[in-house]
Design a protein around this nucleic acid. Structure first.
Lengths: 190, 190
DNA sequence: TGCATTTGCCTAACACCTTTAGGCAAATCG
DNA sequence: CGATTTGCCTAAAGGTGTTAGGCAAATGCA
């Protein structure tokens, strides 16, 4: 019987594609086995279990996102950098909705520490070099930016902005204007 | 054989409690049947299927949230109102993490239209009465506020802010300061 | 090249979840 | 108080997750 040539990486990539097609929650060991025309049990030589598979997809998504973010920030500063980074998240979520969901998969502390998650916060922190913020305001701003990026993208993806005027693109542009203004004139504690 | 007195509402409430205990994704018809000490098939007289059950829990969460939001905004304006509304979402998510997840369950368009979702945007819009914004900026601001509230709360809930200084409470306070400042001096389009 | 070992996928089996069909007894109504 | 409705049950089928053990293809070594 010919071998299918499975391995953890191919399974992870196929799982990511499957996630983009049918949603991360619908990524299942069975569905993946069907995709490779292989029996379900065969996958268990390559991934420990369903949770392990999902973790691998999550890690893949986090790395792809961090790679894009790093590339987007290279050579940019100020609002230019802010826009570029923000669009990395938004575009990735629209191109790869399943992977974007996967990036939100809860990781156990050790796995999270070894993931590309740290790169994300370092990159956001780097973006703030273009603005005049000292600690701890810099950290507050990192958290605020992360919240807006994630919040906007995830609400938009769920369709929250798609059935009313004005167009979501416009709100996104004005949101970035607003964040830029906010970072340039970061208010003191009330 | 004594009857258990099941009905859709009791199942929905129990499902919401179960969600808070074990996570919305783990809410299952079987688990709910165990909780009522009843056979699984019995639940199918009261809810159509698993998806229907989850939808009902989602609608319950959306209503509870809207009720709290309405109460929080009554008699408040400006930053006072902003803080009150923001804390409604944050506190609800921390008290009822499973219900908060449920509120993000994707609803079909008709169900969404009939849900308390509309109240949420109307309430946020009402909050903006305390600031000087004309359309379409008011809508952009509604979307931005929704993004920050949801984004912050969901990142915090997933533990993103819990393993670093400063304390998340402090970032939350400064985030609200920042939003208030932003709304008071909303920048023109770049 | 030929044999031993490793590796990869398979069958079998069990557990749990979802859903439908049909039955009996409790509750309700005339 | 009998007829009807209602509520929970048993039974059964199909899907997913996971483990154990087997056979054959690939690989490594003499």
């Amino acid at each position: 019987m010919a071998r299918a040539g499975l391995n953890a990486e191919r399974l992870t990539r196929a799982g990511a594609e499957l996630a983009d097609e049918v949603g991360f929650a619908q990524v299942t060991v069975s569905a993946l086995a069907r995709r490779f025309d292989v029996k379900v049990a065969s996958l268990y030589s390559h991934v420990q279990n369903s949770h392990d598979l999902k973790t691998r997809i999550a890690l893949l998504a986090l790395e792809e996102l961090a790679d894009r973010a790093a590339e987007a920030l290279a050579g940019r500063a100020g609002k230019d950098a802010l826009t570029a980074l923000a669009n990395v998240y938004r575009d990735y979520a629209r191109e790869h909705p399943g992977r974007y969901e996967a990036a939100r998969f809860p990781l156990d502390p050790q796995t999270a520490a070894d993931s590309a998650g740290g790169r994300h916060s370092r990159l956001t922190r780097a973006l703030l070099r273009g603005y005049d913020l000292e600690e701890p305001d810099r950290t507050h701003a990192v958290r605020l930016l992360g919240s807006v990026f994630h919040g906007y993208v995830s609400l938009e993806l769920s369709g929250a902005f798609s059935h009313s005027e004005p167009d979501s693109d416009e709100s996104w542009a004005r949101t970035l204007d607003a964040l830029d203004a906010l970072l340039r004139g970061w208010p003191p504690a009330a």
